[in-house]
Amino acid sequence: MSIPTPHPFAFDPAYGLTLADLRAIAPPEAPAGFEAFWQKRYLQALAVDPHPELKASDSKHPDWQVLDIVYTSTGGVRIGGWLLLPKDGPVRRGLVVGHGYGGRDQPDFDLPLEETAILFPCFRGLSRSPHPPISANAFFHVLHDIDKPERYVIGGCVEDLWLAVSALLALYPGLDGHIGYSGISFGGGIGALAIPFDERIRRGQLTVPTFGDRKRWLGLPTTGSAAAVQAYQKHHGSVFETLRLYDAACAARRITVPMLAAVALFDPAVAPPCQFAVANALPQSKFNEIFILDAGHFDYPEAARQNAVLLDRLSLFFKAL
């Protein structure tokens, strides 16, 4: 690892664990009814017509046609975002890209993909998808309806992803069988929960995914969204039974499509043991790859080089769609 020391945190964001320790972490067992819970939600989401609406965006780029998009998700929630289309050449594949808990203020123009329609949705309550009373502040967003397992906001965000796929297919029916998903941090956890239940998503890429191994997630010191939930639990009682239904590692056990997971050895916002619980849950397959980063949610000397290598891997990975 090339992490500079000393770091500014009051705890060790590597948690004293080596790569061998992290690779040995076993994902938790899912609670009873886990699959039925998500399959029911998926079927309900599949019945929603997203009615995608497009208009020219104020954002401009030399290689991409940039469009603003709005579509309808479950509960009538309107989801805003961006759609990038190649200026030259056909559209042969689709990619939905999820954001971190900081939200998103523009598309990622540096994704090295060609002949791809790339949809950047903002999950409900965040950035271009305001939906009061859901807070746009990550530390309050993660708590919205946490005491109501069927209505917890994270489930709605998973449905927003499924409806993003529906929106792409409504616009480009020929993309059926050629849609992937890429998500980082919050978007990585949402992706892990969504992919196993949506056969329309044929490949997935997760970077430093959160929401894995909720028991650890609730117990390890962090600067991320788990800190808000830990504080809530201290004052309001255990939320573990709710969170078990939203465990990204339990869901990842059920993923059958090719996956590329990038996980970090040091991360103050998403504890590495929780990231590796997700990555380790993926089935052993020649089509799956685990990419190791020195750190997540933290600047370090090798960051630019490692992220460039990861982008190259991502490009090759999604070309197979």
Rank of each mutant, 00 (worst) to 15 (best):
residue 31 P to F: 00
residue 38 W to N: 10
residue 48 V to I: 15
residue 55 K to I: 08
residue 22 L to G: 07
residue 56 A to P: 00
residue 17 L to I: 09
residue 29 E to N: 14
residue 37 F to S: 04
residue 10 A to E: 04
residue 32 A to V: 07
residue 57 S to I: 10
residue 68 D to K: 14
residue 7 H to W: 08
residue 28 P to L: 00
residue 23 R to H: 15
residue 72 T to P: 02
residue 71 Y to W: 08
residue 18 T to H: 03
residue 16 G to I: 09
residue 25 I to T: 05
residue 67 L to D: 00
residue 7 H to M: 02
residue 24 A to C: 05
residue 67 L to C: 05
residue 17 L to R: 15
residue 41 R to T: 08
residue 64 W to D: 05
residue 61 H to S: 11
residue 55 K to Y: 03
residue 14 A to P: 03
residue 71 Y to S: 11
residue 10 A to Q: 04
residue 60 K to D: 11
residue 66 V to Y: 14
residue 49 D to C: 01
residue 27 P to D: 01
residue 60 K to W: 07
residue 30 A to I: 02
residue 64 W to K: 07
residue 38 W to Y: 14
residue 41 R to S: 12
residue 35 E to S: 14
residue 42 Y to W: 13
residue 48 V to E: 02
residue 58 D to H: 13
residue 63 D to V: 01
residue 56 A to W: 01
residue 8 P to C: 04
residue 34 F to A: 08
residue 30 A to S: 01
residue 60 K to H: 14
residue 26 A to Y: 06
residue 73 S to G: 01
residue 66 V to Q: 12
residue 45 A to P: 05
residue 10 A to K: 08
residue 40 K to M: 10
residue 50 P to A: 14
residue 36 A to T: 14
residue 19 L to V: 00
residue 61 H to V: 08
residue 35 E to R: 13
residue 29 E to L: 12
residue 58 D to F: 07
residue 58 D to C: 06
residue 72 T to I: 07
residue 45 A to Q: 03
residue 41 R to P: 04
residue 66 V to R: 13
residue 39 Q to E: 15
residue 32 A to D: 07
residue 48 V to W: 04
residue 50 P to Q: 13
residue 31 P to R: 00
residue 45 A to F: 01
residue 38 W to P: 07
residue 41 R to N: 06
residue 11 F to L: 10
residue 65 Q to K: 15
residue 51 H to A: 15
residue 12 D to R: 02
residue 55 K to W: 05
residue 62 P to G: 13
residue 42 Y to P: 01
residue 37 F to I: 05
residue 11 F to P: 08
residue 40 K to T: 15
residue 36 A to N: 08
residue 44 Q to Y: 02
residue 61 H to K: 07
residue 59 S to R: 12
residue 43 L to C: 12
residue 21 D to K: 04
residue 72 T to R: 06
residue 11 F to A: 11
residue 56 A to C: 04
residue 15 Y to L: 05
residue 9 F to G: 06
residue 33 G to H: 01
residue 70 V to M: 05
residue 51 H to N: 14
residue 16 G to A: 11
residue 60 K to V: 14
residue 23 R to V: 09
